[in-house]
Structures are given as C-alpha cells and as structure tokens.
Simulated scan of single mutants.
Amino acid sequence: MQEAWELLRNVELALTSLDRLEASIFAMKNEEKQRIAIAAPSVFGFVTLPKVVAIIHSQSASNVRSISGSYEQIGEHILAGRADLGISRLPLDPSLFEWAPLGSARNVCIFHPDHRFSKQACIEAHDLAGETIVDIDPQFAAHQMNFNALRFAGVEPDILVEFDCNGHEAGYVSAGLGISITNEIIVREYAAFNLEAKPVEPSALYHYVAIWQKGRTFSSALNVSLEAIIAAFSTEPPAVSLGSANLLAVG
C-alpha cells in the first residue's frame, strides 16, 4: 500500500513538472505574458492579494492563479510545482525554500465596536473571563498558546464557534457573537468588517515571508510578482485601524 501511494505521488509530481515545463516554454516565447500561481492562506484574498494582482497587472501582461491552503499546504504547493510563489510564516526549511521578509506581527483581540474592550488599551488573559470566544481549531499552535495563557490565569474558555481557517472568525465577531484572537497582519484583511482590535498579552511574534522553491530560476514576470507581494505588504500603514481602534505595527 505504501508503495502504491508513493507511485501515485511520483506520478503527480511528474505531471506537475510537465505543466511547469510547458509554462516555462510559453514564458520563454512570451517573457511578459505568464500565468503566475501564488499560494496563500485564503484570508489574504480580502485585501493583500487584490493589491498584488493590481500591481502585477499594471506592470506586466501576466495573469494570476490564486491557490489557498494552510501554511503547511503552501509549502507543499510550492514543492510540488503547483505554485510559483507563496505567502507563509517562519520557521521554514532553508534546504527546501528561499524567502523574502514581508513583516512581523503580534497578537490582537478583535471584537464588536460596542464591546467593553473598546475602552481598554490592552487585553490580558484574565479579561477574557466570561467572554464568548470564536476560536481557531485546536490543531493550530495559536490555539494552544492562547488557551494555555487563559488556563494559567484560571480562566476556562467559553467557545461558541471553532473555525479551521483564518478569516472565518471575522463574520461571527462583527455580528457580535463573540471575541477572537488573531494577529496584526491578519487583522489588516478585515478592514471591511465592523470590528475593533486591541493588543493582547501574553503575545507571540509571527514572521511573514514570501517563499519559493530553493534554486528556482526567476523569469521577468516572476520577479515582478515577487516585488508585487513585497510592495503589497510594505504599503500597509504603520498603524492598523479598525473602527476607532489603533494597533501599533511591529517591524
């Protein structure tokens, strides 16, 4: 059985390699017009990826294919040749990937503007006592960190909804159904929602990067696309504003 799965995986990689070869031949014939596949968590489709596509469109004739997935799946898309570039987080294996820094972020709590947290400068674990929580799936490290901090403070979390992908919490929170914890870069994607956000302590530090397969040769269109991803992150304002709440950006 293991041999059969390995054979299927090798066949998939071979077919993907043929697709990549075909795309490379097309790119050599028409350097400016190339389809660029970008893998990123789906939440970046709210704000960041539209900025990326707008920059690519303004500077080349290339079109974009957007592929979503978890951070682990982003790496798999890159290695399997399904994606040319990705948006991910460190740590990554330097023997498999190369990357360019995009930004760092700390945790924030998001809530409806009418919530009592709007009057606080910072949210601590004990503040969450009695709060209904919209929380990411227990398989994610962010869940473990947040809930360890709560239980250390003697607070047993009251979970209303669990979600398995960043972005799903915004609708529940903007509807006033609970509060949630995310980070400063993810919260930028929620500009269209009725939310406020404040820093959380204790907090983790997340480092976001644009990634590609180690040793990848860049075409002109791929260089434009990488620069577009970097520009889409660097053009974000130094302070994130949701409603009337301001969050200090981390370098």
Rank of each mutant, 00 (worst) to 15 (best):
G171M: 08
W212F: 10
G178L: 06
H207Q: 14
K198T: 09
V224W: 13
S174P: 08
A210L: 06
A197T: 11
G215R: 07
G178T: 04
H168V: 00
H168L: 01
G176C: 03
A204V: 02
K198M: 04
P202C: 08
V173T: 08
T217W: 15
V187C: 10
K214I: 09
V187P: 05
V209N: 15
S174Y: 02
H168N: 04
P199H: 04
Y206T: 04
E189L: 03
L222H: 06
S219T: 13
I185A: 14
I181T: 04
P199S: 10
L226S: 05
N194Q: 13
A170W: 08
A192M: 09
S220P: 00
T182P: 02
G176M: 03
S219W: 04
E196Y: 12
E184F: 00
G176L: 04
L195F: 11
Y208N: 08
N166C: 03
A175Q: 12
N183F: 05
I179H: 05
L205G: 00
T217V: 11
S219G: 12
T182H: 07
I211T: 13
P202D: 12
I181G: 01
K198F: 08
F218K: 06
A175L: 08
S219Y: 08
F218Y: 07
R216S: 15
V187G: 09
V224P: 01
A204F: 01
S203Q: 05
E196H: 05
L226D: 06
I211F: 02
A191S: 14
S180W: 13
R188M: 13
N166H: 14
K214T: 11
V224K: 07
N166Q: 07
F218Q: 06
A228K: 03
I186S: 02
T217E: 15
S220F: 14
I181R: 14
K198N: 04
S219A: 08
L195Y: 12
K214E: 14
S219F: 09
S219N: 13
S180K: 12
G167M: 00
G176T: 02
E196D: 13
S203G: 06
F218S: 07
S174Q: 12
G171L: 11
A197P: 11
E201I: 10
Y172D: 07
S219C: 06
S180H: 15
R188D: 13
A221F: 13
W212Y: 14
T182V: 06
L226P: 05
S225M: 02
V200H: 14
Y172N: 07
A221L: 07
N183V: 00
A170G: 06
N166L: 01
F218T: 01
E189W: 01
L195T: 11
A197K: 05
P199A: 11
V200K: 10
A210C: 15
A210V: 07
A192E: 15
G178M: 07
S203W: 05
W212A: 14
G171A: 10
A191R: 15
V224H: 10
L226H: 09
I179C: 01
E196T: 14
A204M: 10
L205A: 02
A197G: 11
L222G: 02
Y208F: 15
A170M: 09
Q213R: 12
A228P: 13
S174H: 06
L195G: 11
G176E: 06
N166P: 04
E169P: 03
S219D: 10
A228Q: 04
S174A: 09
L195M: 10
S219I: 01
A210S: 12
H207D: 10
S225Q: 09
N166T: 02
P202L: 03
V200E: 13
L205I: 05
L226M: 12
